[in-house]
């Protein structure tokens, strides 16, 4: 944690019209650290992640990645984004290209690598995610889990220093989640700096160096998985975790507290 922060977020605010989604986020992520961001739907997790690579323009505040201030209006944002890989919930593979072309086209167009080098890097990264045999397939012929692993390989082929994951397993059938998490675990072990929005508590507990709980556009709790998941200090965190771990129980609980609230 004493290493130089790879990602630094300072007093970040983001509004959509009147809707203030992020209300002052401060966060530092050290090089090689894995930070899982959890929180209820609508709490601004995706927005935060999208502000880190400026897919959303912050209303106020600063974002630094690897020492470069992305929020500086004069920064070359395309160059900066090359160092930040992003993986989306819906994969967002390019459907008109084969798996290999999905990996080579960005390298050739953006990094200006030659054909042979791009192909080599593509093959290497497909092997890393265990999909070397799908090199010539089209995305539509792959399962969701395979598509997501291709998406990860596509981001890795650009040689990023930081990887952002926005609920990478939420769109997958349960039996396909494991393969994707295994790839992410491998990346974490290799020392990739990762910021992961997820509801996979087992992954967060076992892989994350830190867990950040967000609610209502602010960071409510930030600490080791043991602290935030194992022994949450805040009522909101506890409530969220109990609902996540046992949805059936939580509903009853809510109903009871609702009724209690009405009778008061």
């Amino acid at each position: 944690m004493s290493r130089t922060p790879e990602i630094r977020i300072r007093d970040l605010h983001k509004s959509f019209g009147d809707n203030e989604v992020l209300r002052g986020i401060d966060l530092e992520i050290g090089q090689g650290d894995v930070v899982c961001v959890i929180g209820p739907s609508g709490s601004g997790k995706s927005t935060l992640l999208r502000c880190v690579n400026l897919l959303e323009e912050p209303t106020k505040g600063q974002v630094f990645v690897g020492g470069t201030e992305l929020t500086d209006p004069d920064v070359d944002i395309d160059a900066a984004r090359r160092r930040i890989g992003m993986v989306f919930q819906q994969f967002n593979l390019f459907p008109h290209l084969t798996v290999t072309e999905n990996l080579t086209l960005p390298q050739r167009r953006v990094l200006k690598r030659d054909k042979a080098q791009a192909a080599r890097t593509a093959a290497e990264n497909l092997r890393r995610v265990g999909l070397a045999e799908k090199a010539d397939a089209y995305p539509s012929s792959l399962s969701g889990g395979q598509q997501q692993r291709v998406a990860i390989a596509r981001a890795l082929a650009m040689g990023p220093e930081v990887m952002l994951f926005d609920e990478p397993t939420s769109a997958l059938d349960p039996e396909l989640v494991g393969d994707v998490l295994a790839v992410m675990r491998m990346l974490a072990e290799e020392g990739m700096t990762m910021m992961v929005v997820t509801h996979e508590m087992t992954f967060a507990r076992e892989v994350a160096d830190r867990v950040v709980f967000m609610d209502g556009g602010v960071v409510v709790e930030d600490g080791t998985p043991g602290q935030v998941i194992g022994n949450p200090r805040h009522q909101r965190t506890r409530h969220f975790l109990s609902r996540l771990l046992d949805p059936a129980m939580a509903e009853v609980e809510e109903e009871i507290s609702d009724r209690a609230g009405k009778s008061e």
């Binding site: 897919l55 160059a79 989306f88 967002n92 390019f94 960005p106 953006v110």
Partner: peptide, 12 residues
Amino acid sequence: GQMEAARSLGFS
């Protein structure tokens, strides 16, 4: 998502 994926890969 296609434009966002492309932008996140560094495409102008």
